[in-house]
Amino acid sequence: MSNATNSRAESIARVLPALDYSKIAIYLLVMTFAAFFISPIWTGLVTAFKTTGAVTATTPFLPPGPDGFTLQKWTTAIEYLSTGMTNSLLMSFPATIASVTLGSTAAYGLTLVDWHKRTQFAVLVLFMFGIFIPYQAVLVPLSDFWINMVGVDGLVGPVLGGLPFFTERHSRLFAVTVTHVVYGIPICMLLFRGYYVALSDELIEAAKIDGASITSIYRRIVLPLSKPMFGVVFIYQFTMIWNEFLFSLTLIGSSASPAATVTLVLSGLGSDLTGVDFGLRMAGAFVAALPTLIIYVLFAEQFAKGLASDN
């Protein structure tokens, strides 16, 4: 009999060779934290599919039953946010492309070309401070500059007024785009710099000996080599600009403005005198986050890389 138990225990031990308690504890821990990080997002997702009645009547993290299910919040949210989405796309793409390009050329001029080590270092330090300063320190001059000095409301209207759906208010969107380029350059520069410093010197030295100019080294060697880094920086910067709120709020002003970006519209969505419509809010939050979520799902690794070298 004891023999039999022994052999059964042995066979179980054979089936589960590495069953050890610390491993189980670690996996439990990992799963608990995964639940912790997912739960607000998951709860939001299921709530977005619930009718207003079901939102208050059901457990928050359980999917709605058949009678509490609705897609109406999503259609309302998409209707509400579609202009904001268009505005955000119109702003984010040019702003990202410009700041990434300028960041790359700046990093090139400061790392792969040696012209004066000390000056280069001083310029680099000035860029570094530009990454960290709180934007609050430039907000008052920024709005003064765009609204009072440039008179941005009258600037773009006459030039681009002929385009469909382009109203004069969209000139505020132009101001936000340019602002994002200006303040996005330092971080893009830093990300590229880390990559260029680690780049092998050999190719560039060889090209220099062959008499290649600074421009052709950049175009023929550095640009092709930094393709993967362009991907990383683009993904990182696009996410940052899409998610940004402070510049939109202070330069565009109101979530009701036709130039409002999606984050600005979302901040005013689904609340009125009767209270907050959480189903609509959650649906809106997902619609607004959709581009960054898609990018994240597709390029999570690049995003993590951008974050990790951001220091």
Binding site: P40, T43, N243, L266, F278, M282, L293, I295
Partner: peptide, 14 residues
């Protein structure tokens, strides 16, 4: 990867 505007909505509900 999410905007603070988005996560604030989630936590308001949480």
């Amino acid at each position: 990867a999410l905007s603070f505007v988005v996560t604030a909505q989630f936590w308001l509900w949480m």
